[in-house]
Design a binder for these strands. Structure first.
Lengths: 255, 255
DNA sequence: CCCATCCGTTTCATATATCAGAACATTTGT
DNA sequence: ACAAATGTTCTGATATATGAAACGGATGGG
């Protein structure tokens, strides 16, 4: 085999086993021993043995007597990962950055049914109280972080919202058509904007942290009193939060 | 997991490497070499080397200089799998419908050996916690979704169950004759009913999603606390889930 | 400030997996 | 029924991974 001279030590057994697993997971139906050995440039006997190992470990099962397919075990493991993902650690530096850039209250939120839950925050450095605490929640349809998450997966979530658009202020979007339009605007802007839709005179910006497939797992948010927003600052703040969220998304992948 | 009748040869490198990956995926933050080696009963040097391999293959990354964590690569591979089954997409609207009709926890599950794995759910809208998460699993013989799948293919699966009917509550059906009778009832009703056979005081209903040849590929389920079930509601809920599953089955045909 | 202790890393005989090639068994297509 | 695939099992020489011990850096307590 042509090994890279830069990354010297790889256990070939593990490497080949994982390659087989990847191949099987990528194929809709199963693959046979010979097919796999050709694709991965391995001997038949080696491929067969690795498949046997993967089978007894539960990662692979035989379909009929001539082909193998990946089980859901790989998916379950990956699922565990996403659930245990330490968003706080990943997003921490970006929260700090946003705080320094704006001086306003910065939030990290995750979706929970039709609400978002704050899992981290940095207080405003201006002498203004904040209402939201870590562990607290807010309706998904009327805050920046919530609408950013909605926008990332609107097709899946829209139907659940109909009839559940509770009013909180006179600016809350309570009919689905208005929300449709707002979400469309959010999608094209790349960040969400709430103009006092949850608390009177409190604005919030939000942008989603997404996995490679587009699923939103969290959102970054900036919240500030209406009076603090200078003319033309909305675009700047929106861009800040959008780009910070993009950096966190990328960090989830690469570390 | 009781399939160790024979002991086929397993490649230890692959086996250990996957064990490490599983451990890392299950841990919130990273783990160190020594910690892993103790947990998995491996030597430090072996663990170190496997971690090095997993790192160059992109499955693992170093956090700081003293610990390793799993990347999202495992998740991406597993995702490929469920993406190819577009069950979730097909069943989504029916899950939503069941949620609206009942307000209880709704599940979509697929069979995996002698268990079922939850691949999607909608939380109860009532203030009751649910234990089952997406990615989690449950024994096939004592939950509604599992028994629905069993009922669809009982002739093929019955023999594998003998001797594997683990007890979970005092209502669990642990002898094959009792299960035979329950499955027969399930088949004539068109939906499965679990009366606290897996968790005390938790009822669940299930109905199978089947291919035209009768093979069950998934099941829809509704789970609720015993106390939520009004007299005579069982028939109504059973019919709801049976018909929703039938609609999903039909949808699989037409695309 | 030093020492005991922990950790990640490296080293090197030895145990283990891999390779190639072939043979055998079983299925599929004509 | 025959031929051409495919999955499965051997074999022993070679390449590779393994375990035990040692190394060097970091940490924390006395």
């Amino acid at each position: 085999m042509a090994d890279q001279s830069k990354s010297p030590k790889v256990d070939s057994t593990l490497s080949k086993g994982l390659a087989i697993l990847e191949r099987l997971a990528a194929s809709r139906s199963g693959k046979g021993v010979t097919e796999l050995s050709r694709e991965l440039d391995l001997t038949k006997s080696n491929t067969f043995r690795l498949l046997q190992t993967l089978t007894t470990l539960g990662y692979v099962r035989r379909l009929d007597n001539r082909s193998y397919a990946a089980t859901l075990k790989t998916w379950q493991i990956g699922r565990n990962l996403v659930e245990h993902l330490d968003l706080r650690e990943m997003a921490g530096p970006e929260l700090t950055y946003l705080s320094k850039q704006t001086g306003e209250a910065i939030y990290l939120a995750v979706p929970e049914d039709l609400a978002i839950v704050y899992i981290d925050k940095i207080d405003s450095r201006k002498p203004i109280r904040s209402w939201n605490t870590v562990g607290g929640s807010a309706p998904i349809h009327c805050v920046g972080t919530g609408k950013a998450i909605l926008a990332a997966n609107y097709s899946r979530m829209r139907d659940k919202l109909v009839g559940n658009l509770t009013r909180h202020t006179d600016r809350t979007l309570t009919n689905i058509e208005a929300l449709d339009a707002d979400i469309a605007a959010t999608q094209s802007r790349g960040y969400a904007l709430d103009r006092g839709e949850y608390r009177e005179h409190i604005l919030s910006f939000g942008a989603a942290v997404t996995l490679p497939d587009g699923v939103a797992v969290a959102a970054l948010g900036i919240s500030l009193p209406e009076i603090n927003l200078a003319e033309g600052d909305a675009g700047r703040i929106g861009a800040l939060v959008r780009e910070a969220a993009a950096r966190v998304s990328e960090k989830l992948l690469r570390g």
